[in-house]
Amino acid sequence: MKITVRYITLIAALITGTQLWGQGSITGSVIFEGKGPRMRTIKMGADPVCSAAHTEPVKSESVVVNGNGTLKNVLVSISAGLDGMKFEIPEEPVILDQNGCTYTPHVWGVMAGQTVEIRNSDATLHNIHSQSKQNRAFNFAMPKVVKKKNHTFDKSEDPFIIKCDVHPWMRTWAAVFDHPFYTVTDDTGKFTLENVPAGTYTVKAWHESGKKLPAQTLEVTVSDGQAASLDFDFTRTAK
């Protein structure tokens, strides 16, 4: 009887593509030793609303080295090992906010088909210009009276820029996935991918510096109920 139930469960899993094996997590950090490039102060004088929104100078976020020798804004995701698995698209939207004429978050991921809620918290107008290649590129207006617009990306895609041409310093990086296992390193340089099905995967760490800090991949095996650990080292050594 027990074996029959197991077979039925297995067949049901194969039909629905649902993962029934155990789950674990992947944790780690992105190391960056030494000094990063000096980040320029963003001049927002072109729009009085933007400059009035900040009391402190705003620095570019293109390379943020944390005080503990780690790197912020690194997109960490599973890049291989999930073949044949299907995942539910989250109902809650990803929020991209234009606030103080900067994008929050600076780097982010979304699942294909998941809603991206683009907000305009500023009392000024923005244009939202996506430079996606796999998904249709777009450029639409968000006057100050339009506070919210939804958009959905249909296909998975490597990171691409979304920018505002009214305020040329405004840039954010988006990536579209067909699974939910992605995250972005924070002020501590750490990351955690939760609820990963047990198995062996390739994990990719990507930073917007492109070839200057090339993306890295590491293999990891996740066991049921265990936290697999791995660290990426983005310290630039070669000239």
């Binding site: 210009h129 450029n139 639409f140 207006a141 041409d165 009214v166």
Partner: peptide, 16 residues
């Protein structure tokens, strides 16, 4: 030079 080419997304109108 100021990368403003797409700051007005519509044409021939301007922000509608």
């Amino acid at each position: 030079s100021t990368q403003s080419g797409l700051s007005v997304p519509d044409w021939p109108n301007t922000y509608g």
